[in-house]
Amino acid sequence: MKLTAGNRLVSTVCSTEIIVVKAGDEDVSLTCGGIAMVLPEERQGATTDGTISDEAKNGTLLGKRYINVDDTLELLCTKAGEGSLGIGDTLLEEKEAKVLPASD
């Protein structure tokens, strides 16, 4: 699906929830635990027979940001879970935290 900043998506195999911070123009098949993520209102009806794949079970941490290799996609985790975020089978990387002093 095509993503835009502000989109909220949820995992169907764990408690992970994310919000899109940055997205490119192309279609992206976002996964969590190796299974496609869905819109919050779709979770109820989503098939949850899937289990977290072994390649994607490192977990997603609250408040961490996740990016793809080209840094064209950035997600912010708003609810932690056991599955890892990915595009298809490729896992996203955790974005390195910046250290800036408080300025406000």
Binding site: A5, V21, G63, K64, R65, L76, A97, K98, A102
Partner: peptide, 24 residues
């Protein structure tokens, strides 16, 4: 707009980076 404020906060701060003792 929300996008401006969010860009500012995400661009300058990390979530939960403050310790419990900190107060502004």
């Amino acid at each position: 707009r929300h996008k401006h404020i969010v860009s500012y906060v995400l661009g300058s701060q990390e979530f939960m980076s403050a310790t419990e003792e900190q107060a502004t």
